[in-house]
Structure formats: structure tokens, C-alpha cells
Amino acid sequence: MDINARIACRVRELRDARGFTLDALAERSGVSRSMISLIERGLSSPTAAVLDKLAAGLAVTLASLFEDEPRGSAPSPMARQAEQPVWTDPASGYVRRNLSPPCRSPVQLVDVIFPPGKRVAYDGAAREVEIHQQVWMIDGVMELTVGEALWRLEAGDCLAMQLDRPIAYRNPGRKAARYLVALATLPPMNPRRS
């Protein structure tokens, strides 16, 4: 399945599972109703920032938007490399590979290759679930701004953060940077109503 078709199906499945209308998800996420409709019909190639807003509105991680919804039998605890979804952000060109199997673990792993000189910013939308993230640098250099703090990561460095504030990723180097993202989701604290 094409990655945009996978995202389209997944956003629709998650929205339907929560009983949200397009208007309700638009209000919760800050993404326009028309944009959500285009995404769900596979007619838009959304940016990482838009997908992060949708993920926050749906109370899931960004990585969850790339998973296949298991049908029938229980999902496999194995994710073969050939089956791992790969997506490229149309705005920055960063490439992410979801490494984790779709077995609904509270931990997800993502491999990212980030082009030199590029930047991606997430606004830190309010989330119903508490998501913790660690970024472990494999190669190259990245600058992460977490809230007001600026961190420079080089190969071997690891930074932990909670996804509850604005975060920006920037590759100041001359070569692509590669890093592993580990995400852990905790149960909802104060559920919002749609």
C-alpha cells in the first residue's frame, strides 16, 4: 500500500474508532476540516507538522499514523524490514522508518534520516496521553529546541523529553544526520471530550 494511502486509511480508522466527526477532529487538532478530508481521501501529502497535530487530536503518537490496523488475528510481534513503513516529509525531505511491529506496544521505535540544513518544528499541541521520547544520535549532528532549551546532539548522544511543548529539529551539518527515536505512551491523564 502506498504510504499516503496508508496514512489516509489510518487517520480515518482512528477518527471513526473515537467517534469523531471531521469537525470534531478539526477542532481537537487545529487542522482544517477540508485538509483532514483531503488527507483521508489520499489527495494530500501532509507535512510532519500537520500529521503531528492530527496525532495529538487523535491521542496517538505520530508513529501510530503509519501503522496498519490489524484485521482478524492478533498483530505479529515481528516487523520485517521490508514491511516497515517508510515516509518522507514533503516539506523538509526527512525520511522516517517505523521499526516497531503493530502489536500495540506502549513503546515505538523510529529510524530517521534528516537532510543537511533542514528544519522541522512541532507546536507541542496539548495531548490526552503522556508521550515521552528519547532521541539517540547514530550519525551526524542535530540541534533540538525543546521549549526554550537548545540541545546539540552528536553521534552517541541521547536526549530525553516529554512531548508537551514546542520542539524543533534542525540539522546544522553538511551531511545527513541519522537518529533513533524511542517513544513511550502513558495512559490518558485528563480525557477531553469531543
Rank of each mutant, 00 (worst) to 15 (best):
L144F: 11
L180N: 02
V135L: 12
G140I: 03
H132L: 13
A149K: 15
E154H: 11
C158I: 06
L159E: 15
P166A: 08
V129T: 15
L150G: 15
W136P: 03
D164F: 01
D157V: 10
D157M: 05
P172F: 00
V129K: 09
P166M: 08
Y179C: 08
D164V: 00
L150S: 14
L183E: 14
L186Y: 14
R174Y: 05
N171D: 06
G173Y: 09
E130I: 13
V146K: 06
I131M: 08
R178V: 04
Q133G: 12
Q133V: 06
E130G: 14
P191V: 01
E130N: 13
C158Y: 12
L150M: 10
T185R: 00
A168W: 00
L180G: 01
G147I: 10
W136M: 09
W151R: 13
G173I: 01
E143T: 04
I167K: 01
R174W: 08
G156I: 08
P187N: 11
G147Q: 05
E130Y: 08
W136S: 12
P172W: 00
A182F: 03
A177M: 04
T185K: 00
T145W: 06
V141K: 02
E143P: 11
R170M: 05
R174I: 02
I131F: 03
N171R: 02
R152H: 09
E148I: 06
M189F: 08
Q134H: 13
V135A: 14
G156V: 04
E143V: 05
V181F: 02
L153N: 04
M142P: 10
R170P: 01
L183A: 10
A149R: 14
L180M: 09
V135G: 04
I138P: 09
P187Y: 11
M161Y: 06
A184S: 12
G173S: 14
V129N: 07
H132C: 12
R192F: 03
I138C: 08
L144P: 03
P188E: 13
E143H: 11
M161N: 05
L163F: 01
V181T: 15
E148W: 05
N171C: 00
R152E: 10
V146S: 06
E130A: 09
P191A: 03
P172A: 00
E148G: 07
L180A: 02
P188C: 08
D164Y: 00
A184I: 12
W136Y: 07
H132S: 14
Q133L: 03
P166K: 03
R178P: 08
M142N: 07
N171Q: 04
Q134W: 09
A155T: 09
C158M: 14
A182D: 00
N171I: 00
R165S: 03
A176F: 15
M137H: 01
G140M: 03
L150F: 06
V135N: 09
I138W: 09
T185L: 02
Y179E: 12
A168E: 02
A149N: 07
L150H: 10
N171L: 00
A184W: 13
P166W: 09
L150P: 01
E143L: 05
M137V: 04
P191W: 03
L180T: 03
N190W: 11
P166G: 02
Y169M: 06
R165L: 03
L163T: 13
Y169G: 04
W151P: 02
R178M: 14
Q134P: 15
V141I: 07
P187Q: 15
M189Y: 10
L159M: 14
E154K: 13
E130M: 10
V181D: 11
P191H: 10
T185C: 02
H132F: 14
A155P: 04
L183S: 11
